[in-house]
Design a protein around this nucleic acid. Structure first.
Lengths: 235, 235
DNA sequence: TAAGGAATTTGACTCATATCAAATTCGCCC
DNA sequence: GGGCGAATTTGATATGAGTCAAATTCCTTA
């Protein structure tokens, strides 16, 4: 009377992933059977730099940060992984050491699908292979996009773009930051101070109204322009 | 008497790619049959931002730069693709617009494998699927590594790391830049001026000796330390 | 081999963002 | 409901790298 609820949890989470959408019922059942459910406390290390990753993690609840460490104590969050998102794919075929630490930001539940299961599935189920390739391509695309933003756009631009991306629809006028501002800042590649000032600037200019983590987008139009319009705007 | 030499060229280039290592002889022959050979003059556009990519490109000779464009005219080279390297994989399953321009840096020969061919091959040949996933993971890993360098390490550090990476063996004492310094600079995420100063700095400190594009690594030890040892070093 | 243009280097100066420091405010737990 | 520690904001200052400009050096092409 323990395995059953666990399987149900895994089932629910995994079934929702795009990755398994096109997998046959049978093969999917096998994945669920081999999946394990894990729980981490806020602050606990899920995976450590340089160490092997056991497989694919899917977040059931809570949040995990994937963080890079620089020469000094400097940190940069590569990705904040929330419910129904996954991480660990990169390490599936790891010949290189893992570059980042994965840390639970709050109490977090994860579903772990062992690497072996997935490797087998690639050979067995062509649909899955296709799905996996597609999802890796998507991740790669997102990464390039992030890379571009970090390298080529200013702090306020990045923030504006992020706020836009949080809004589900083009009309949605209210978004909620999924984590502490300090973390969002690190995710966007800036310090908490710069983040605070950039958000303050948008508020002063009347583009948004801020109330804690809840942010009202007052002027999507101008916000969109802020995404492109660098600090330098040609009049 | 035109198809034959072309096929031979494609065969040679494609056979060398890790991607096709584990593909059966038959399937590989089919890939070669469907591949096309293309030639570009220095400066010509191979693929354009926002437009569809027809498939996977493998460089036979020459070099292609993949460049991102910022708000202003700012550019950043994501990757310099040389002989026996490939690009265009990301776009295989593209739902998002292509983010970068691909431009021939010198006169360049490319082998194009149509996307459809590869998509079919995934379904047909499980070994290929595995290889493709592996190669995407590797690309992703390289990208994270680049991301870390750009975000968390200083210009001189990045240059030192790059020089190290150019050296085939840990003993090799002489490396040659694969392209103009201006391009290498953009690849490393800095301006040509900063590149020049950083390299000058390494030379002044006796870590390297520079003669045009040929660079002698005088002190691999200290160079290695320069990779980590940020501007701030704790004594 | 000379001329012309590109690539590279060097110098002076600017700017966006990081740092350091301190004041406030927010969220919880008892 | 008050008090503590964490999160956030705000101010002052420092700095790495970009920008602009000009001097040189390298390659090619004629």
């Amino acid at each position: 009377m323990n395995a059953a609820p666990r399987e149900r949890l895994a089932l629910g989470v995994l079934a929702r992933l795009p990755l398994f959408q096109s997998v046959s019922r049978q093969h999917f059942a096998e994945v669920v059977r081999q999946a394990r459910s894990l729980h981490y406390r806020r602050g606990q290390l899920v995976a450590k730099r340089g160490e092997p990753v056991p497989g694919l993690f899917a977040v059931a609840y809570g949040m995990v940060k994937l963080e890079l460490h620089g020469s000094a104590g400097a940190e940069r969050i590569l990705r904040l992984v929330g419910p129904s998102q996954t991480f660990g794919e990169i390490a599936l075929f790891r010949q290189q050491p893992l570059l980042l630490d994965a840390v639970a930001v709050v109490d977090t539940g994860l579903i772990l699908v062992p690497a072996a299961t997935l490797l087998t599935l690639i050979e067995t189920d062509a649909h899955f292979a296709r799905g996996l390739v597609a999802s890796l391509c998507q991740r790669l695309h997102a990464m390039v996009s992030d890379f571009e933003a970090t390298t080529l756009h200013g702090a306020t631009e990045r923030l504006a773009a992020y706020l836009q991306s949080l809004a589900a629809s083009p009309e949605a006028a209210r978004v909620t930051l999924p984590a502490a501002k300090k973390l969002i800042a690190a995710r966007l590649g800036m310090t908490k101070e710069t983040f605070s000032r950039a958000l303050g600037g948008l508020a002063r200019d009347g583009l948004v109204r801020v109330a804690g983590r809840s942010i009202e987008l007052l002027d999507r139009e101008r916000l969109e322009r802020a995404v492109r319009g660098n600090t330098l705007r040609q009049p």
